[in-house]
Protein backbone atom coordinates (compact mmCIF):
# COMPACT_ATOMS: atom_id res chain seq x y z
CA UNK A 1 0.00 0.00 0.00
CA UNK A 2 1.34 3.43 -0.94
CA UNK A 3 1.99 5.61 2.06
CA UNK A 4 0.50 9.09 1.93
CA UNK A 5 0.25 11.95 4.40
CA UNK A 6 -3.19 13.06 3.35
CA UNK A 7 -6.31 11.04 3.96
CA UNK A 8 -7.25 10.69 0.27
CA UNK A 9 -5.34 10.50 -3.03
CA UNK A 10 -3.47 13.45 -4.49
CA UNK A 11 -6.18 13.81 -7.19
CA UNK A 12 -8.89 14.00 -4.53
CA UNK A 13 -6.83 16.54 -2.63
CA UNK A 14 -6.31 18.64 -5.74
CA UNK A 15 -10.04 18.65 -6.61
CA UNK A 16 -10.98 19.33 -2.98
CA UNK A 17 -8.61 22.26 -2.62
CA UNK A 18 -9.33 23.61 -6.11
CA UNK A 19 -12.82 22.45 -7.03
CA UNK A 20 -13.94 22.99 -10.63
CA UNK A 21 -17.31 24.21 -11.88
CA UNK A 22 -18.90 24.83 -8.49
CA UNK A 23 -21.78 27.27 -8.21
CA UNK A 24 -21.05 29.84 -5.56
CA UNK A 25 -24.01 31.59 -3.98
CA UNK A 26 -27.47 31.79 -5.43
CA UNK A 27 -28.67 29.46 -8.20
CA UNK A 28 -29.56 32.50 -10.27
CA UNK A 29 -25.83 32.91 -10.85
CA UNK A 30 -25.98 30.23 -13.54
CA UNK A 31 -28.37 29.90 -16.41
CA UNK A 32 -29.25 26.21 -16.53
CA UNK A 33 -31.74 23.97 -18.32
CA UNK A 34 -32.14 21.29 -15.66
CA UNK A 35 -31.10 20.46 -12.14
CA UNK A 36 -30.71 17.08 -10.43
CA UNK A 37 -30.75 16.62 -6.67
CA UNK A 38 -29.73 13.66 -4.52
CA UNK A 39 -28.96 13.01 -0.90
CA UNK A 40 -30.11 14.58 2.25
CA UNK A 41 -28.37 16.92 4.69
CA UNK A 42 -29.41 14.55 7.50
CA UNK A 43 -27.17 11.90 5.96
CA UNK A 44 -24.38 14.43 5.77
CA UNK A 45 -24.31 14.73 1.99
CA UNK A 46 -26.53 16.51 -0.47
CA UNK A 47 -25.72 17.34 -4.06
CA UNK A 48 -27.24 19.37 -6.83
CA UNK A 49 -26.01 19.22 -10.40
CA UNK A 50 -27.02 21.97 -12.86
CA UNK A 51 -26.64 21.40 -16.60
CA UNK A 52 -26.87 23.66 -19.60
CA UNK A 53 -27.60 21.66 -22.74
CA UNK A 54 -26.74 22.65 -26.33
CA UNK A 55 -27.62 20.95 -29.59
CA UNK A 56 -24.71 20.09 -31.85
CA UNK A 57 -24.84 20.39 -35.61
CA UNK A 58 -25.42 16.65 -35.87
CA UNK A 59 -28.47 17.04 -33.65
CA UNK A 60 -26.96 15.44 -30.55
CA UNK A 61 -27.61 17.13 -27.23
CA UNK A 62 -24.44 17.85 -25.27
CA UNK A 63 -23.69 19.17 -21.81
CA UNK A 64 -22.52 22.61 -22.80
CA UNK A 65 -21.84 23.77 -19.27
CA UNK A 66 -22.23 22.35 -15.80
CA UNK A 67 -22.25 23.57 -12.19
CA UNK A 68 -22.77 21.90 -8.85
CA UNK A 69 -23.47 22.65 -5.24
CA UNK A 70 -23.00 20.35 -2.29
CA UNK A 71 -23.42 20.11 1.43
CA UNK A 72 -20.82 17.43 1.64
CA UNK A 73 -17.51 16.11 2.80
CA UNK A 74 -14.14 16.41 1.10
CA UNK A 75 -14.63 13.37 -1.09
CA UNK A 76 -18.12 14.57 -2.07
CA UNK A 77 -16.64 17.89 -3.16
CA UNK A 78 -13.79 16.19 -5.00
CA UNK A 79 -15.96 13.58 -6.72
CA UNK A 80 -18.54 16.14 -7.86
CA UNK A 81 -15.76 18.39 -9.13
CA UNK A 82 -14.21 15.46 -11.00
CA UNK A 83 -17.55 14.39 -12.44
CA UNK A 84 -18.23 17.90 -13.70
CA UNK A 85 -14.95 17.78 -15.61
CA UNK A 86 -15.65 14.32 -17.02
CA UNK A 87 -19.21 15.17 -18.08
CA UNK A 88 -18.63 18.57 -19.63
CA UNK A 89 -18.87 18.44 -23.41
CA UNK A 90 -20.30 14.91 -23.47
CA UNK A 91 -23.58 14.06 -25.16
CA UNK A 92 -26.41 13.32 -22.75
CA UNK A 93 -26.30 9.67 -23.79
CA UNK A 94 -22.55 9.48 -23.17
CA UNK A 95 -22.91 11.30 -19.85
CA UNK A 96 -25.46 8.73 -18.72
CA UNK A 97 -22.83 6.05 -19.28
CA UNK A 98 -20.42 7.62 -16.76
CA UNK A 99 -20.42 5.27 -13.80
CA UNK A 100 -19.58 5.78 -10.16
CA UNK A 101 -16.62 3.47 -10.82
CA UNK A 102 -15.39 5.84 -13.56
CA UNK A 103 -15.40 8.74 -11.08
CA UNK A 104 -13.68 6.58 -8.49
CA UNK A 105 -11.00 5.54 -10.96
CA UNK A 106 -10.49 9.16 -12.13
CA UNK A 107 -9.91 10.18 -8.51
CA UNK A 108 -7.43 7.39 -7.86
CA UNK A 109 -9.80 5.35 -5.72
CA UNK A 110 -11.75 6.62 -2.76
CA UNK A 111 -11.71 4.62 0.48
CA UNK A 112 -14.52 2.03 0.53
CA UNK A 113 -16.67 3.98 2.98
CA UNK A 114 -16.43 7.03 0.72
CA UNK A 115 -17.51 5.31 -2.48
CA UNK A 116 -21.08 6.46 -1.89
CA UNK A 117 -19.88 10.05 -2.46
CA UNK A 118 -19.07 9.24 -6.08
CA UNK A 119 -22.42 7.46 -6.38
CA UNK A 120 -24.15 10.63 -5.19
CA UNK A 121 -22.51 12.76 -7.87
CA UNK A 122 -23.30 10.17 -10.48
CA UNK A 123 -26.96 10.00 -9.37
CA UNK A 124 -27.26 13.80 -9.31
CA UNK A 125 -26.08 14.01 -12.92
CA UNK A 126 -28.47 11.24 -14.02
CA UNK A 127 -31.30 13.03 -12.26
CA UNK A 128 -30.42 16.30 -14.03
CA UNK A 129 -30.43 14.58 -17.43
CA UNK A 130 -33.75 12.86 -16.66
CA UNK A 131 -35.23 16.18 -15.56
CA UNK A 132 -34.00 17.77 -18.76
CA UNK A 133 -35.52 15.05 -20.93
CA UNK A 134 -38.80 15.24 -19.05
CA UNK A 135 -39.12 18.97 -19.63
CA UNK A 136 -37.65 19.43 -23.11
Amino acid sequence: MTKQDWVYSETVKEHFLNPRNFLMGDESGFSYDAVGTVGNPVCGDQMKMYIKVARREDGAEVIDDIRWKTYGCASAIASTSALSEIAKGKTLDAALLISAEDIDAYLGKLPKHKFHCSILGHDALRDAIEQYRKNH
Binding site: W6, V7, F16, D45, C73, A74, S75, A76, I77, K114
Partner: peptide, 25 residues
Protein backbone atom coordinates in the same frame (compact mmCIF):
# COMPACT_ATOMS: atom_id res chain seq x y z
CA UNK B 1 -24.59 24.63 5.90
CA UNK B 2 -20.90 23.65 6.07
CA UNK B 3 -19.90 20.01 6.49
CA UNK B 4 -17.46 19.10 9.25
CA UNK B 5 -15.00 16.91 7.38
CA UNK B 6 -14.59 19.55 4.70
CA UNK B 7 -13.96 22.22 7.33
CA UNK B 8 -11.48 19.95 9.08
CA UNK B 9 -9.55 19.19 5.90
CA UNK B 10 -9.51 22.80 4.63
CA UNK B 11 -8.08 23.73 8.05
CA UNK B 12 -5.64 20.84 7.72
CA UNK B 13 -4.45 22.29 4.42
CA UNK B 14 -3.67 25.47 6.40
CA UNK B 15 -1.81 23.37 8.99
CA UNK B 16 -4.48 23.80 11.63
CA UNK B 17 -5.36 20.52 13.30
CA UNK B 18 -8.85 20.01 14.73
CA UNK B 19 -11.45 17.24 14.79
CA UNK B 20 -15.09 16.86 13.77
CA UNK B 21 -18.21 14.97 14.83
CA UNK B 22 -19.31 14.55 11.22
CA UNK B 23 -20.11 11.01 10.14
CA UNK B 24 -18.09 11.49 6.98
CA UNK B 25 -14.84 11.84 8.86
Amino acid sequence: AAEGESIQLYLDAEEIVVSTGSACA
